[in-house]
């Protein structure tokens, strides 16, 4: 579904963050990416929907070469949901408007239909009563659940998660992970950058270890945590587990 070929990203300060990433995400997979900070995992994720423009390399999504400058990236992004570390709910809009803005403005749904759909999604995460609230009135965990709902309202084919629990108070991590687990069970294709090893083990179909701008190791969760091969990963796991 997503094919990445020899992806490089060099920032303006000559920081070479991605040094040739190759990967193939299949439909229905839950890919969990772990690694030390500065390893390029977030940059890699942000390249997938071109929030970062790769310096070189190719990304294919559903058979389309999306790194082609001529492609309409807005159309592609309609099918790729993204959840951010800092939630990034629209501060000027109510929760309901946060969720319905994109589907309505992009003419995928009528206003009423979008509202109905939003309420359905809100009840799925147990936040129906917050429809008229503003983001500033919610807790971090609630904000992140809403952010997930906002992405889901577009009926995406794949969901990208960029450290979705890293900015949360510890007692709120669980409620967000629960929503993500439920989403995984529903068959959604997911790419998740996280530090939650428990989530990686439980939900991931594949776990990737990134360091120094490449994917150093890739394996099923059992193998990944049970018998890590490369030394860097063994070292990393000994520190985080």
């Amino acid at each position: 579904m997503i094919i990445v070929k020899d992806l490089h990203k060099k920032f303006e300060d000559n920081n070479h963050v991605l040094r040739g990433v190759n990967y193939h995400v299949h439909q229905g997979e839950k890919i969990v990416i772990v690694g030390p900070s500065g390893s390029g995992k977030s940059t890699f994720l942000r390249c997938l929907n071109l929030l970062e423009t790769p310096t070189s390399g190719e990304i294919w999504f559903d058979g389309q070469l999306i790194t082609d400058p001529k492609i309409n990236i807005d159309k592609i992004r309609e099918h790729m949901g993204m959840v951010f570390q800092n939630f990034n709910l629209f501060n000027n809009l109510s929760i309901m408007d946060n969720i319905t803005l994109a589907p309505v403005k992009l003419k995928l749904m009528g206003k009423e239909e979008a509202k109905e759909n939003a309420l359905k999604l809100l009840s799925r995460v147990g936040l129906t009563d917050k429809a008229d609230a503003f983001p500033s009135q919610l807790s971090g965990g609630q904000k992140q659940r809403i952010a997930i709902v906002r992405s889901l309202a577009m009926n995406p084919r794949v969901m990208l998660f960029d450290e979705p629990t890293s900015a949360l108070d510890p007692e709120m991590v669980g409620e967000v992970l629960d929503v993500m687990k439920e989403l995984a069970d529903s068959g959604m294709t997911m790419v998740v950058v996280t530090h939650e090893m428990g989530f990686a083990r439980e939900v991931g179909t594949k776990v990737l270890f990134m360091d120094e701008g490449i994917i150093m190791e890739e394996n099923t969760p059992a193998e990944f945590f049970g018998s890590p091969k490369c030394e860097r990963l063994q070292d990393f796991l000994s520190k985080v587990l």
Partner: peptide
């Protein structure tokens, strides 16, 4: 305005001007 606001908008498929 926080950069995350426009990133969130763009990630949903909204255009730059929207």
């Amino acid at each position: 305005v926080d950069k995350g606001q426009s990133e969130a908008g763009r990630s949903l498929g909204l255009s730059k001007s929207q």
